[in-house]
Nucleic acid binder design. Structure first.
Length: 468
RNA sequence: GGCGGCUUAGCCAAGUGGUAAGGCGGAGGUCUGCAAAACCUCUAUUCUCCGGUUCGAAUCCGGAAGCCGCCUCCA
């Protein structure tokens, strides 16, 4: 059996069949750049990173598109409050976003289209909807008439009649034919200040939903394979994307909809008022290791609500340390021969890893497969050692897992060491040779305070950088 | 009010009808000058609770409690 995904659209797991064999078109809802992204946002991006990396691991070619929403109520309000241009205002958060992606080792998407540079595509799409009669003009704005779309509500399981209660009523609602109709184009008003475009549709700016339809179709075609986002985007955002896209093209918009659950922090909903609202930078500044954050965010299945705790991050770091120690121990091992054991151990791990992730990215059994391999191979190393072939096989398997998880290999900075530290290590080796253990222990303690951990092994003294 | 999800060991987390993966933490042991790493042994007679179906249920059905989410621009 091939890969299966839980498709929100049909509320069940389905075998994944790409439109074009061996190729996947993937659209992932990106950030609104009005503020620094928080760890809840990054849970979504890490899930999407896992998805993309796994598809590559399974041999697919992937085009991933992630939008940058740089025009909406919040960005307009932000730049006008600060009295700077929209571009100046959003640049700060765009730059920070990409820095954060690097920190978490989230691989770059193929395209990061910005809404402000795709106004023409959006205008064209709105015109198509006007031509088809599913959009209507009201004042200077243009709305989508949802009663024209028979499947409206299919994705989110909402019924049109149920949408009335609980909905906030905005002044503009009164202008619309139906309260649930949504804006495709918003006519300029004074609060927008200098933020507007003069287009065939008039002076104003695009509505929020239209950017994802216009930009996904531009880069991926009118029908594409996978669209991801957080559960909160199911309604109304993705519902509206489907309605406007399918009404315009007459074709199915997306084949597989994947939605990730939210996270909580220390058992509570993350909110500024609970004082548990964190950006990635907040956590790194508190000394949390980025890879431990990545581990925590990836280790809970994406459709399961995740409880982010500081204890969890510490536990994750200990798990990572085990993986990293294993990786270097394999690299440095020598002079043995498993007699083929390593081959079957890695083979079994790879099989389990793949069958787990094939099943809707079931991460827990996949991680268990990696740790089972570590344990089994450690045992072989302790008992009979590894041959050069064994090492190659193991390192190849680890690199394969790392291409998906990105935290299996030790961080590069762990390899850098300065001359003074090198001198101290040598001094300690000499002290031990002379049985001067007091001096040896003193040097070891001193290095530990500098974050260097020493291990005396059969093949000599090894060091590693302490992570915390 | 409408709709949906979750509840498994000290913590995190798999398991969706056949008798509880994995990680962290903890205890003991081997190795070591002592450590570290690694290895070995142990760490849930039981899956929020109450009923039911079944030869058999963490898994299916009904009910209760608790937590969480969506219901117009929040991943």
């Amino acid at each position: 059996m091939g890969i299966q995904f839980y498709n929100t659209y049909n509320r069940r797991k389905e075998e994944f069949k790409p439109i074009k064999e061996g190729y996947v078109g993937l659209y992932t809802c990106g950030p609104t750049v009005y503020d620094y992204a928080h760890i809840g946002n990054f849970r979504a991006y890490i899930f999407e990173d896992l998805l993309r990396r796994y598809l590559l691991y399974r041999g697919f070619e992937v085009t991933q598109v992630m939008n940058l929403t740089d025009i909406d109520d919040k960005t307009i309000k932000g730049c006008n409050t600060k009295g700077i241009s929209l571009a100046e205002y959003t640049k700060v958060f765009k730059d920070a976003f990409f820095e954060d992606l690097d920190t978490l080792k989230i691989a770059r998407a193929t395209h990061y289209p910005e809404a402000t540079t795709h106004i023409k595509e959006m205008v064209d799409l709105v015109k198509r909807l006007l031509d088809k009669g599913v959009a209507y003009r009201m004042g200077d704005s243009i709305y989508y008439r949802i009663t024209e779309f028979p499947n409206y509500g299919k994705l989110s399981g909402m019924k049109l009649e149920d949408l009335k209660t609980g909905a906030r009523i905005d002044a503009e609602e009164y202008e619309k034919e139906t309260a649930a109709d949504f804006a495709l184009w918003k006519g300029w008003d004074e609060d927008d200040g200098d933020v507007y475009w003069e287009t065939e549709l008039g002076k104003g700016r695009p509505g929020w939903h239209i950017e994802c339809s216009a930009m996904s179709m531009k880069y991926l075609g009118e029908t594409f394979d996978i669209h991801c986002g957080g559960v909160d985007n199911m309604f109304p955002h993705h519902e509206n994307e489907i309605a406007q896209s399918e009404a315009a093209t007459g074709k199915r918009f997306v084949n597989y909809w994947l939605h990730n659950a939210h996270l909580m922090v220390e058992g509570k909903k993350m909110a500024k008022s609970f004082n548990n609202f964190y950006t990635l930078k907040d956590l790194i500044d508190q000394g949390l290791h980025p890879m431990a954050v990545r581990y925590v965010l990836i280790a809970t299945h994406y459709r399961q609500q995740l409880n982010f705790t500081f204890d969890g991050v510490n536990a994750a770091l200990a798990s990572l340390q085990r993986l990293w120690d294993f990786y270097t121990n394999v690299e440095e091992s020598s002079g043995g021969d498993s007699g083929g054991q390593i081959g079957s151990i890695t083979h079994e791990a790879e099989e389990k890893f793949t069958s787990a992730l094939d099943d809707d990215l079931n991460i827990s059994p996949a991680l268990a497969a990696v740790f089972d391999m570590v344990k089994a191979a450690n045992r072989v190393m302790a008992e009979v050692g590894l041959s050069e072939d064994d090492k190659k096989i193991l390192l190849k398997a680890l690199d394969g897992f790392d291409s998906v998880l990105a935290f299996v290999k030790p961080p590069e900075e762990a390899k850098i060491i300065d001359e003074e530290v090198e001198r101290l290590i040598q001094a300690r080796v000499d002290a031990r040779r002379n049985k001067n253990f007091e001096e040896a222990d003193r040097i070891r303690d001193q290095l530990l305070t500098q974050g260097i951990i020493l291990e005396d092994t059969k093949s000599g003294t090894k060091w590693k950088r302490k992570v915390e």
